[in-house]
Structures are given as structure tokens and as C-alpha cells.
Design a protein around this nucleic acid. Structure first.
Length: 783
RNA sequence: UGGGGGAUAGUUUAAUUGGCAGAACGGGUGACUCUGGAUCACUUAGUCGGGGUUCGAAUCCCUGUCCCCCAGCCA
């Protein structure tokens, strides 16, 4: 846990921290979690909840719970309640900040009219199909609707009549008037309002027009004074509308949208549609089926909110599409359960064992600690030991393989918290199945090591007479395929369901102590996994346990190792097969920048001539010459610069590297300085007056302020330090400050040279002559 | 093939914004153990490819490749 780490944990917190520091919102932080009440929350939502509520907590802000209920046909109160419960269960509290977009319908309507009055929105009367046609395609611009230029009055009138219910569904829509030719499809006059004569679960029949997400969301954020509106990557394109609307409708400082990659988890699906399908088709028992990635499913499974929050913490927040390994999730769940689950014994598949040298009518109540040594908790229960007990069928093998150290004929094993027993006889039925073991126990081995021999294995057991029969449900991953969404031709995600994701065991037997425990106790069944009573089906007289997660099991892992190796090998082969095919077809990039420069030279003989002259006469590299002759302005800038400072190679490098970085895509004549000032800067570096680093810094400032390079160098004292004596002194200080690094360097970690150079450069504010520093440093470190 | 994003060990994620490529999970080895659990130690392995700038590049410039999102009156 890096709770007190001063660095923000992710790029979003970094942005928030920066805004807080800059006082963008007066130091205020307000986030929101905006679910649509049309489905249940899942682990993917948990990531967003933890992010939004987490940020609010950390920055002393607030996080609103806002229901984005702008589509009356899919939403319901049932979902609202379930979502509220899930957020609470996760451990977050929105306080009084519970909101509904539907509460803003009147205000949103006013915003819409304001937009119309500004001439920025219009009522379109095209049919749904026509609108689709007019929108164009990703590669082709759209066409403007014939209704696009209706007057403000007409639009207002029509929009009011839309609200008044004068039109049928689909007759009109309100659209923003932006740009039908925008390369961003979402900006091609997005629809703001549609007519829906439908009953809304909260506003009833008060409205027959409903705002679209793209309209309602940014404005709801603004109404609530949200500062940071955090959503998932697929909304990146929507940010353009978000900004457009807020820039036109609200005063700064306004909320801003930031996007992160949503969670994808191995062996599960996350889309509401698919989850719904699983439920409706009876592939799972319901939304709270313990195999579902829903929060209610995980809750019933027995996973704690702590574990889920911890998981969200570990996976981090970034913009890279990624899929989290199931092992990581399991690890987090186990890690959480390990410290909170008392240990008890439960035999899943009982095998009868008769201890022939133990008296028939005797019962010993042995003390068994709930916690292993490494967990600092107290407490124990009594377990009854008798002549007849059950052990796990898997813990006996008639012909054991190597390194199997459980029970087999003639061998000994420790019974957990009890005696060591030896298997003397194996009893089989007519079918040849093992039905009973005859063993003898060593009375000397209670709380003591057996004498003169080592017993490596310890197995769990229960008394035959005192144990309680229970049903145990073994849950495993829902899908066989890590990414069930990645479907092969002719299949669906459902074809990858794991047929063994639920295994019900009816004849299991558990030690009697659990009958006294609260029903929501999470246990570790020793050597099996973590379990909890099923909150729906378990009754005191008929206990049902869910397996939350199995224990990590290096024995069965070893058994599986060979098959897994093969799996990995074939996957790698597959990858190799795909690689050459993929790289075989390089795609033509017609409109690439390099292509544009080439084209420019083909059409402009002056540029072409310059290119050849630069290469042949000025000794520029082909790449440098290419970059300088892609357009006339750049070429003229270069010509003027070398006229002032006749060092074409260095001028070219400075233009193509440092200057290019400043410009990005801006035209070169938009610069705050001209070619002469630029040339003088390059000269300062060439003549060794300032270092290359100082040169870059100077260039930045020239771009910012338009000051001359000499002014900047003088004002900031950037002149290069080449005085050996002074540098030696600085170097000595740096080395003295980092004795450990010096030792490491001398011990062979020469990569640290960069570190030392960096320190010297820093303490001289980048003014030291780096080459000299390198030399002197090597000298000093050698001595 | 228009636009918007993205690419760091097997996986997820850091890197003082140009200065020691670090962590977690997984894998491996060993120690310990009355759970083949836990714990501990050690270990494995990485900057998408190719050029360039720089004393120094994951980071800047050029170029190529791959992946994701957008043509709902869903959110």
C-alpha cells in the first residue's frame, strides 16, 4: 500500500492534483458516478466507482451518484434501488448527493431553447432513415438537412409543440447545428432531443420529449458543478460535443471530461446485453448467480467489498485497452480472505476410515485453533475424534505417484490437529472401488512429532458420527475462453461457457462447530478453499456452502503443468503463424505526411531543386533535406537562417528536431520569432556559448515571449560552464551526496553515469558543458 | 482508406516529464510449516520495428506496423 506516496497514482489523479494546485475550481473537486438504471452493476462499474469516489475522498471533494435516466423505455426504479445498494455495499457514500438527470428535464429544456435562440440548434423533420442517409459515412461527409436553416422563431415554435405533444414519435428531432462534414461523425449535427410518448419511471407522463445522452450528460455535469467528469474510452469522440455544448451554454470554469480504459477481465463478459442474455436464457440462475461478474453475484459468492476495492486499486487506471488476468483477481480475493477466515474442516468427498486400535465408545474433543501460526488471531474450537472418521477420497491413493505424500497402503499421514495414522488395509466393494480404509493410530503423536520417522503429509478429516452433512457448491470461471467476446466464425460467446463452472456436491460433511457460527461467516475449509453459506439457499438444518475461491494448489498445478506447457506452445505457434501474414501486406498510406512533402516537390520545381542542393551541396542527410522542402515557408525559413548563420547542418537539425517539436502541426510563420533570431540561437550553441540543453530552453522561451536569444541567455544566465575547476567542485559535491551510488558504480553498475551527469546538470541548472562533465566524472569515479 | 485514441517483462502498471527501466501478479528455485495454504529469500523476463537528434532517449524528430473507438431518435 502506497497510501502516503506523494505522487498521484494515475494520470487522472495527476490532472485532478494539478487542477487543485492551480486553483482551477477554487480547489474544489467534484466527480460523479452516472449509471443508467437499466441493468445491474458489475465489476467493471466497480472500477469506475472506486475511481470517482476514491478521487473525491482523496482530494477532500464529493462524488455524486447520478442516475442517467434519459431513456424512459429501458429504465426502472428496481434498478435504481439495486444500484444504490451495490454502491453502498462497496463501501461508498454519496451523502446528500443523489441526483437524477430526470430532475433536470426542465433546466435541460431551457438550455435547448437557449441553443435554438443562439441559432445553434434546429428542429429537423427528416425521417430516421433519412437522417441516417444524410449523415454520410466515416470516409464521406454528410449532407445538410433541408430543414437545417429554419428560422429561430420556427424552431422555437416547433420545439415547443414537440414538448406539448403535438407530434408523433419520430416526426421531429432537435439537432445541434455543428458541421455535417465533420470528420468526427458525432459532430455531424448530433440529435439532442427525440419524441417519445412513453411513461418515465420518475417523471411519469410529464414529458414526451427526452434529451439524448450527449446533451443531458455535459449539462447535468454543469448543473451539479462537477469538476472532473470521468468516463470510459469509448466516449472519447463524444468529448467534442461535451466541450461544444458547455462552451456555448455555461460560464467557466466548466467541467471537463477525461477518459480511461474500462476493465476487461479474463473468463467473463461485461456487457449488459450479454449478461442479460445469460440470465434470460437460464444459463445462470439469475443476476446474483455466484458466477456472474455482477456485484450482487460476487456478494453472494462471498467476495468482500474490501477485496473488490483492493483489486480496483491494483489494476490501476490508464488509457491502454487491457484485459486483466483472472489469477490476479483470484489472488486479491484469497489475500483478503486469508486474514479474515477462520479455518475449519470439511470433507467434500468422504472416504470412511476405521481406526482399529481406537476404542469403539470413545470420543476425544480435541482443541483445534481457528488460525494458523502466521495469522495473529486467537481462538479455537473442539473437534470430536472417534474410531470412525471420514477423509477426503483424493487424500488416499492405492498406487501413489512420486512425491505424493498423503495416505496409501502401509504409509502414514497426519490427521490435522490430531494423531498420525497408518493405513493397514483397503476394503473394496464388488466393483473394485475403495469403500473403506482400516488404519491404526499412534497415541504418542497428539501434539507431538512421531518418534524416529518423518510424516510429511497432513490431511483434514471429520468424525463420522458428529459431522454434519452439507451441500457444497464449487464455483469456477464461467467461461472456458479467456476472452469469450473473441468469437470464431459461426459461434457466439455462449459456446465458450464452462460446463463445470458449477459443481454441486451433496454428500459433503463438515465438523459440528460451524452450527454455532453466524450464517455469514467466511471460512477456510482447510486444504480446499474459502467458503460461505449461500445467502439464498442455506438453512440451519440444511447448510449450503459456496466456494468463494479455491486455495492456491501447487500439487495439482504440478499435475497440470505438462498440459499447460503444450497450450502455451501451441499459442506461440499460432502467434508466429499469424505474424508473417500480417506483415506481408503493408498498407498504402496515401495521405501520409511524407507523401505530402513528396507531392509538394513534384509540383513545385523550386522545392525539388532545393532538396537536391541541400543533399549535394550542403551535405544534409536525405531525411533533413526532405523535411525542409515539404513546403515553401519552411524552405524560406531555412534559407534565411543559413544566410545569417552559415552552418546548414546544425541549422537543419535544430529546425527538424527542436523546432518541429514546438510547432507540432502549426505553420512555421506562426512563430513568435523569425529565422534570424533562430539562426543566432543555433550560433550560440555552435560556438559553445550555451549548451544544447540551454539552447532548447532558450528556444522554448523565444516561442513563448518572442524575446531574442541573447536577451534570454543573459537574463537567465544560461552561459555554458566549461570551467574545469568549478565543475570538479560540483562533481565532488554530487559524489559526496551519493556515496552508495558511487560504490555501486565502482562495483560495476556503470549505467549510473547517466544518473551522475543528470545530478551535475541539475545542480548547474543545465549550464554545464555535458561532454566535459562526462569526462571529468569518469575521471573522478575511477579515482 | 476520414477522424479520435493506444502500444513498456507472460499479464497489469510505474519511471523525478530527457538522467539508475521499477513494482505487483504469474513462472522458477530454495527455506519454513501439523493446510501441497500463508510467509520469507533468491530468480526469471521488457521499452512495437527502422532511422535520426542528444554527452545521455521508453520519453524529442522522421518513418513504418499492429490494436481499440465512431456512421442508434442507446448510454
Amino acid at each position: 500500500m502506497s497510501e502516503s506516496s506523494d505522487k498521484p497514482r494515475d494520470f487522472i489523479r495527476e490532472i485532478v492534483a494539478r487542477d487543485v494546485e492551480a486553483g482551477t475550481y477554487g480547489g474544489r473537486v467534484a466527480t460523479r458516478f452516472p449509471p443508467e438504471p437499466n441493468g445491474y452493476l458489475h465489476i467493471g462499474h466497480a472500477k469506475s466507482i472506486c475511481l470517482n469516489f476514491g478521487i473525491a475522498e482523496e482530494f477532500g471533494g464529493v462524488c455524486h451518484l447520478r442516475f442517467d435516466d434519459t431513456n424512459p423505455t429501458t429504465e426502472s426504479l428496481e434498478y435504481v434501488e439495486a444500484i444504490k445498494e451495490a454502491v453502498h455495499w462497496l463501501g461508498y457514500d454519496w451523502g446528500e448527493h443523489l441526483y437524477f438527470a430526470s430532475d433536470y428535464f426542465e433546466q435541460l429544456y431551457e438550455f435547448a431553447e437557449a441553443l435554438i435562440r443562439q441559432g445553434l440548434a434546429y428542429v429537423d423533420s427528416l425521417s430516421e432513415e433519412e437522417i441516417r442517409e444524410y449523415r454520410g459515412a466515416v470516409t464521406e461527409p454528410g449532407r445538410e438537412s433541408p430543414y437545417r436553416n429554419r428560422s429561430v422563431e420556427e424552431n422555437l415554435d416547433l420545439f415547443r409543440r414537440m414538448r406539448a405533444g403535438e407530434f408523433k414519435d419520430g416526426e421531429h428531432v432537435l439537432r445541434a447545428k455543428i458541421d455535417m462534414a465533420s470528420p468526427n461523425m458525432l459532430m455531424r449535427d448530433p440529435i439532442l432531443y427525440r419524441i417519445r410518448h412513453a411513461h418515465h419511471y420518475r417523471t411519469g407522463d410529464a414529458w414526451c420529449i427526452y434529451p439524448m445522452y450527449d446533451f443531458a450528460h455535459p449539462l447535468s455535469d454543469a448543473i451539479e458543478n462537477i469538476t472532473h467528469s470521468i468516463c470510459t474510452l469509448e466516449f472519447e469522440n463524444n468529448r467534442a460535443i461535451y466541450d461544444w455544448l458547455l462552451d456555448h451554454l455555461v460560464q467557466p470554469p466548466r467541467p471537463h471530461q477525461y477518459e480511461f480504459a474500462r476493465l476487461e477481465l479474463d473468463y467473463t463478459v461485461m456487457s449488459k446485453r450479454k449478461l442479460l442474455q445469460l440470465v434470460e436464457e437460464g444459463l445462470v440462475s439469475g443476476w446474483d448467480d455466484p458466477r456472474m461478474p455482477t456485484l450482487m453475484g460476487m456478494r453472494r459468492r462471498g467476495i468482500t467489498p474490501d477485496a473488490i476495492r483492493r483489486f480496483c486499486d491494483i489494476i490501476g487506471v490508464a488509457k491502454t485497452n487491457s484485459r486483466v488476468k483472472y489469477e490476479l483477481f483470484e489472488h486479491t480475493v484469497r489475500d483478503d480472505l486469508n486474514y479474515r477466515s477462520p479455518r475449519v474442516m470439511c470433507v467434500l468427498r468422504p472416504l470412511r476410515v476405521v481406526i482399529t486400535n481406537y476404542p469403539e465408545d470413545q470420543t476425544e474433543w480435541l482443541d483445534a485453533p481457528y488460525w494458523p501460526r502466521d495469522i495473529p488471531k486467537e481462538g479455537s474450537r473442539k473437534v470430536p475424534f472417534e474410531r470412525v472418521i471420514y477423509i477426503e477420497r483424493d487424500d488416499f491413493m492405492e498406487n501413489p505417484p512420486k512425491k505424493y505424500y498423503r495416505l496409501s497402503p502401509g504409509r502414514e499421514v497426519r490427521l490435522r490437529h490430531s494423531y498420525v495414522i497408518r493405513c493397514d488395509e483397503v476394503i473394496k466393494n464388488d466393483a473394485g472401488e475403495v469403500v473403506e480404509l482400516r488404519c491404526t493410530y499412534d497415541p504418542e503423536t497428539l501434539n507431538a512429532q512421531p518418534k524416529g520417522r518423518k510424516v510429511k503429509g497432513t490431511i483434514h478429516w471429520v468424525s463420522a458420527a458428529h459431522s454434519i452433512p452439507v451441500e457444497v457448491r464449487l464455483y469456477d470461471r464461467l467461461f472456458l475462453k479467456a476472452n469469450p467476446d473473441d468469437v470464431e466464425e459461426g459461434k457466439t460467446f455462449k459456446d465458450y461457457l464452462n460446463p463445470h463452472s458449477l459443481v454441486v456436491i451433496r454428500g459433503a460433511r463438515i465438523e459440528p462447530s460451524v452450527a454455532r457460527d453466524p450464517a455469514d461467516t467466511r471460512y477456510q475449509f482447510e486444504r480446499q478453499g474459502y467458503f460461505i453459506q449461500d445467502s439464498v439457499d442455506s438453512r440451519p438444518d440444511a447448510l449450503v456452502f459456496n466456494r468463494i475461491v479455491a486455495l492456491r494448489d501447487s500439487w495439482s498445478k504440478e499435475q497440470r503443468a505438462r498440459t499447460r506447457e503444450q497450450e502455451v506452445r501451441s499459442q506461440k505457434q499460432e502467434a508466429r503463424r499469424e505474424e508473417p501474414g500480417a506483415s506481408k501486406e503493408p498498407r498504402a498510406t496515401d495521405e501520409g505526411r511524407s507523401r505530402a512533402r513528396e507531392l509538394a516537390r513534384a509540383q513545385n520545381p523550386a522545392l525539388a531543386a532545393a532538396y537536391h542542393r541541400y543533399v549535394n551541396e550542403l551535405n544534409l542527410s536525405e531525411q533533413d533535406a526532405d523535411l525542409l522542402t515539404g513546403d515553401e515557408a519552411t524552405m524560406r525559413f531555412f534559407e534565411a537562417a543559413i544566410a545569417a548563420h552559415d552552418h546548414p547542418v546544425s541549422v537543419a537539425r535544430w529546425m527538424n528536431n527542436a523546432l518541429q517539436r514546438l510547432l507540432k502541426d502549426a505553420p512555421i510563420d506562426s512563430l513568435a520569432f523569425g529565422p534570424h533570431a533562430f539562426a543566432r540561437l543555433v550560433a550560440l550553441v555552435d560556438e559553445g556559448v550555451i549548451s544544447a540543453n540551454a539552447g532548447k530552453e532558450t528556444l522554448n522561451e523565444m516561442a513563448r515571449t518572442g524575446a531574442s536569444p541573447e536577451e534570454i541567455v543573459d537574463a537567465r544566465g544560461l552561459r555554458q560552464i566549461s570551467d574545469e575547476a568549478a565543475l570538479r567542485e560540483t562533481i565532488a559535491e554530487v559524489l559526496a551526496a551519493h556515496p552508495d551510488k558511487v560504490a555501486a558504480y565502482r562495483g560495476g553498475k556503470t549505467g549510473l553515469l547517466g544518473f551522475f551527469v543528470g545530478q551535475v546538470m541539475r545542480s548547474t541548472q543545465g549550464k554545464a558543458n555535458p561532454r566535459l562533465v562526462n569526462d571529468l566524472l569518469k575521471e573522478a569515479l575511477a579515482g
